[in-house]
Structure formats: structure tokens, C-alpha cells
């Protein structure tokens, strides 16, 4: 078994660690052959492995540079089952928000503009750099952030930011026990319906929203549906499976689990729902109400921009 991280925060790897003592059960069944944050296996070691010699690879993180892409190809070749683990591998995730910017915008922010940057010579990272000892290489930084299946074939998706550790264990045990696996391409560890099914907040029969608020702008009553209170919650467009974790913690759902099956563009779908929930009829009132939605695209595509129909800001 292998665990790899691409463009990720590390949370997914930690969620694997979160299996705690169950890890013992895991390693009873499988050898961990590659896991950059825990083991010292080198890329070359993996490249040298025989094709399909890894039973299961959990690939977390998006694909953002040539290193990520290379490892995606390598791991695909070496693994029997490749799982896009976590929101970033599944849909692009938070790193995917970089698709709202161009590569140039990102680099100039980091290397020129940011207040903490001192870079009078305007040095920028080079893919190759000649030093007396030879040529140094760093990965090529791509224009776009991609999700894993835009690069290689993926067997399963285990969504979440990060995924529920319990789900991982279930999936792992299913694989090792040789149980009947779901059809290739399935999103696993999720329910069939949206979060609302499990959400216990009270939903109004007469929804009618004047305007939207950011969560800190209102005092959440703790019992009624966020949308009814004018706070954008992605739950109704997000497939269940996490146990409505965020809402239970009194935060609206942000949609990390991805869409309900049958929805082709999660952000577009929730935009439809959210806009419809408004009660304004006059065009100016409508514009005003819509204006109250801060960072619309970022809100509705927080985890899924690269997976959306129009996967990046148009240049």
C-alpha cells in the first residue's frame, strides 16, 4: 500500500494517521511501501517497482506541477487500485482555487508583491539552474491546478477535506477482505443523498430569503437551516457521508464531499438553488440581494473549481 501527496495541505495524510491503533490492523494486512511523510522510500524506489505491484494507492492532493504529474503517472502504473483520496485529488480542492488566478499572478504575488517579500533582483524560480556541480532541477509550476483524474485513470474517489478516517478503514478492510468492490469510477464512502437528509436543523416550508450573510454577520440560532437564516450552506448540493460534521459544529457545509450523483456542476446547481431562494422580484432588489453574496464563485466552487464545467478563470 502507498500513500502520496500532491498539491495538498497534509491534512489527508494526517487523516490516514488518525486511524490510530487501527493502523495495527492495517499493517497486519498490508505493507506500507511508500508514504513520503512517514517513510523514507525514494521516488526512484517506486519507479523501480514492478507495474501493478502496489495493491492500493491513496493519492491525495491536486496536480499542480510536473512532480505531481510524474508521480501520478508512476503510481498509476505501479498500483492495482488508485484512489483519489480527499477533495483535492477528487475535485481539485482548496489548491484548485488557484485556478482563479494565472500562474503569472501567483508568482508575482509570492515573489514580488507580498509585503514580506524582499526580492530586489526579481528572482523567480527556474525549472533548471546551472551550478558548478551541475544542473539543478525543480518541478515545473503549471498554469492550472488539475484533479487527479484529469491526469490519470482513477479507480475510486474517497472525498472529503479530509476524508472521514472511518470511511478509509471501511474501504481498506473491504479491499483486503476481497469483498465485492463497487464499479470502477465510484465515489466511495458517501451516502446516496445530500447532507440535508442527516442534518437535523429545521428547514422552513416557506423559505424566503431577503439577502445573504457571511456566517459571522448573524447570530446563528443553532436550530434552523442555515439557508433559511440567510447563510450560504452547500449541504443541499453536497453528498452526505461525513456525518454533517460542519453543521454539527454550527458551521455551514462548504461542500468538500462533492456533488450528489446526477449533478454535473455542483457550483452551478447550488447557485440555482440559492438564487431561487431569494424573494426579491424587482430587478434592482434582486441585484442588491445577489450583491450580498461575497465571493460567489469562490463560495460555490470552494472545493470543485477544477472539476467544474469552466474549470478556471478565463484569460
Amino acid at each position: 500500500m502507498a500513500v502520496y501527496w500532491g498539491a495538498a495541505c497534509g491534512g489527508c495524510c494526517v487523516s490516514v494517521l488518525d486511524v490510530h491503533e487501527t493502523l495495527l490492523t492495517v499493517i497486519q494486512h498490508a505493507d506500507l511501501v511508500f508514504w513520503p511523510i512517514a517513510l523514507d522510500t525514494k521516488y526512484a524506489d517506486v519507479e523501480a517497482m514492478e507495474d501493478k505491484s502496489i495493491d492500493l494507492t491513496l493519492f491525495n492532493g491536486a496536480v499542480r506541477n510536473s512532480e505531481n504529474e510524474h508521480m501520478a503517472h508512476v503510481l498509476r502504473a505501479k498500483s492495482k487500485i488508485l484512489v483519489a483520496y480527499g477533495s483535492c485529488a477528487h475535485m481539485g480542492g482548496i489548491p484548485g482555487l488557484a485556478n482563479f488566478s494565472t500562474k503569472e499572478e501567483l508568482l508575482s504575488r509570492v515573489y514580488d508583491e507580498s509585503p514580506s517579500t524582499v526580492n530586489p533582483d526579481k528572482v523567480r524560480p527556474q525549472h533548471e539552474y546551472k551550478v558548478p556541480e551541475g544542473t539543478l532541477e525543480i518541478p515545473n509550476f503549471y498554469e492550472d491546478v488539475c484533479m487527479l483524474d484529469q491526469i490519470v485513470d482513477v479507480d475510486y474517489y474517497l472525498p472529503g477535506c479530509p476524508p472521514q478516517t472511518e470511511r478509509l478503514v471501511e474501504v481498506f478492510l473491504a479491499i483486503v477482505s476481497g469483498a465485492q468492490l463497487p464499479p470502477k469510477g465510484s465515489v466511495i464512502g458517501v451516502s446516496e443523498r445530500a447532507q440535508c437528509e442527516e442534518c437535523t436543523r429545521i428547514k422552513s416550508d416557506n423559505r424566503s430569503v431577503d439577502r445573504f450573510y457571511r456566517p459571522w454577520e448573524i447570530e446563528d440560532d443553532g436550530v434552523s437551516c442555515f439557508i433559511d437564516q440567510g447563510v450560504i450552506c452547500m449541504g443541499s448540493a453536497t453528498v452526505g457521508g461525513c456525518g454533517v460534521r460542519c453543521v454539527k459544529g454550527n458551521a455551514p457545509c462548504r461542500g468538500c464531499y462533492g456533488p450528489v450523483p446526477g449533478v454535473t456542476d455542483m457550483g452551478a446547481k447550488i447557485m440555482s438553488t440559492i438564487a431561487t431562494a431569494l424573494n426579491a422580484e424587482d430587478e434592482n432588489d434582486i441585484i442588491k440581494a445577489i450583491d450580498s453574496i461575497e465571493d460567489a464563485a469562490g463560495t460555490f466552487y470552494r472545493f470543485s473549481l477544477p472539476a467544474s464545467k469552466i474549470r478556471r478563470k478565463i484569460q
Binding site: E192, D205, R207
Partner: peptide, 20 residues
């Protein structure tokens, strides 16, 4: 099988055709 009971549809039908 798909409806999650979110009630997003409940109040929008002009003919009150949708019930919960």
C-alpha cells in the same frame, strides 16, 4: 431515492403542487 428533504423546492411552485 435522490431527494434529501432539503425543502429548497417547497415554496417556489406557483401552483403549490409540491408538498412535504
Amino acid at each position: 431515492e435522490i431527494c434529501s428533504g432539503c425543502k429548497s423546492c417547497l415554496n417556489i411552485c406557483p401552483y403549490k403542487a409540491i408538498t412535504f
